[in-house]
């Protein structure tokens, strides 16, 4: 009886026209997936592989996706995990304890005379962000480019909200500091 009446607790849409629904809900975020993968792996080919892998994974586990939830955040979490796995496999992942979350964020706030906004350009910013530790890069991309809320970022990265906040402000200040150093050195 139970088998006859009850379906597995999966959303109805997964069974009916699964692929169409998947393409409609998840596929629009291929760019977001690629952008994140590109920033995290820093390589075009890696990013492409990761996006393909992530979308296949997403398709396979689409049953766990709750309708009404943010498909972009859901996909980005998968992308991020794929990136982590790949970097780990390649031995490229920086150790997680590299960042000391307890030290207060410093940086430009304390020496604002180094601010050189007019010298900032896309090339510099891109290089500086790519040189940041992975933990900073992921919060920065999710916040500045995807404009996700702290809460959504916390869910994607599976870290507490407070950590998102501190990583983001540390990451930004670290980035600002590096930019200023680069610009100052260029002037010498």
């Amino acid at each position: 009886m139970s088998e006859k009446v009850w379906n597995k607790p999966t959303p109805e849409h997964v069974r009916k026209g699964e692929r169409e629904v998947f393409e409609r809900t998840v596929l629009p975020y291929v760019n977001a997936a690629y952008n994140l993968a590109r920033w995290l792996t820093r390589r075009e080919e890696d990013a492409e592989d990761i996006v393909q892998e992530s979308l296949l994974r997403a398709m396979r586990s689409f049953g766990t996706f709750i309708p009404g939830r943010d498909a972009r955040a859901w996909l980005l979490a998968i992308v991020r995990n794929c990136c982590r796995t790949r970097l780990r496999r390649k031995g490229l992942e920086e150790p997680a304890d590299q960042l000391d979350e307890t030290v207060p964020a410093t940086g430009l706030w304390s020496n604002p005379e180094t601010v050189l906004i007019e010298n900032i350009n896309s090339q510099l910013v891109r290089r500086a962000v790519e040189e940041l530790p992975l933990e900073y890069r992921e919060v920065l991309v999710l916040r500045e480019l995807e404009e996700l809320s702290y809460k959504e970022i916390a869910q994607i990265l599976d870290i507490p909200l407070g950590t998102v906040m501190s990583r983001l402000s540390r990451g930004r200040r670290e980035l600002h500091g590096r930019l200023c150093n680069v610009i100052q050195e260029g002037r010498k």
Partner: peptide
């Protein structure tokens, strides 16, 4: 400074070929 950095941060668009590959892969 933050605003200026943000506007200079590039957003990488997925190449057309990748999107096509994915659609094929998904059996579209």
């Amino acid at each position: 400074l933050q605003a200026s950095v943000k506007t200079q941060l590039p957003y990488f668009q997925a190449p057309e070929s990748l999107v096509r590959k994915i659609r094929t892969q998904l059996g579209s």
